[in-house]
């Protein structure tokens, strides 16, 4: 039911109240002289706020430990456990296994990697058809790299082709990879980047993430996402206020607010 038709005059009077309130809020935040521009937080004020923040050392230690563990620095994680007394958030032995698999992919021993993954947990590849496909694709790439043309052809036909039938995206990937065979000088092949180290790294990090997930651990370390959150939050705040920002994360130096 809409009773507004006969009440409009009254409603307009009511409206002025919140408008006033809004002006009041705005004035409270801004010095009168610059009511039209952004709020400015001086360096002194900002530094005072920074000083008042309470951050627990143990929490920072945990953040660092989480990085070492997730990135697979097993020795460093173990040393950090001893030096800082921080307990790792995963069994350190599992890192060693994970890193062996990762290393195998990075150095082109894909078959070894696949076997190791299955030793670790056979459900990983069963439940990740895409990961399994990328490993097979990597294996094909490695065969082409070392010039085992016959073996590569056989592998492509027997193992990869059937997978292309089940998935259009897989098929395109297979086509790109097989194209490498056609070019004698692979540098000129439009898909030459598949032979690049970065392709190995990409596959390796996919493997790494899948193993972490299977161990119910987050696949990415917390720190980079906090750094991104810092970029995002600084940008958001920048729209509303001028304040000392940090642009260079490696020095964490405060910059004077741009007025």
């Amino acid at each position: 039911m809409n009773p507004f038709v006969w009440r409009r005059g009254k409603a307009e009077k009511l409206l002025s109240l919140p408008v006033l309130e809004e002006c009041f809020c705005a004035c409270r935040q801004l010095p009168a002289s610059m009511a039209s521009s952004k709020k400015v937080v001086t360096r002194d004020e900002w530094e005072r706020k920074l000083r008042d923040v309470k951050i627990r050392k143990e929490d920072m230690n945990r953040l660092v430990m989480n990085f070492l563990v997730t990135e697979g620095f097993v020795d460093a994680a173990d040393k950090f456990r001893i030096e800082s007394g921080t307990q790792p958030d995963i069994d350190l032995a599992t890192i060693t296994d994970r890193m062996e698999v990762k290393k195998a992919v990075q150095s082109g021993n894909v078959q070894e990697a696949i076997e190791k993954i299955n030793d670790l947990n056979p459900t990983i590849l069963d439940t990740n058809p895409q990961l399994y496909f990328h490993l097979q694709q990597q294996k094909l790439i490695e065969l082409i790299r070392v010039g085992k043309i016959n073996e590569a052809l056989e592998f492509a036909q027997e193992e990869l082709a059937p997978r292309g039938e089940e998935n259009q995206a897989f098929l395109e990937e297979i086509e790109k990879t097989v194209a490498l065979l056609v070019f004698e000088d692979v540098k000129n092949c439009p898909y030459g980047e598949l032979l690049d180290v970065s392709q190995r790294l990409k596959t390796a990090s996919e493997v790494n993430a899948a193993i972490l997930t299977s161990q119910s651990h987050e696949k990415d370390p917390k720190l980079p996402s906090l750094l991104k959150m810092l970029i995002w939050t600084q940008n958001q705040l920048h729209e509303k206020a001028a304040y000392p920002r940090i642009s260079n994360f490696s020095t964490a130096a405060l910059e004077d607010p741009a007025i």
């Binding site: 706020k49 920074l50 923040v53 951050i55 720190l223 906090l226 939050t233 206020a241 304040y243 994360f249």
Partner: peptide
């Protein structure tokens, strides 16, 4: 303060200032 701590302090302050807005 380590670099990490400075960044975390900055994040904490930025986030709470943003809340005020």
């Amino acid at each position: 303060y380590s670099c990490l701590e400075k960044l975390l302090r900055q994040l904490t302050v930025c986030s709470s200032e943003l809340r005020v807005f």
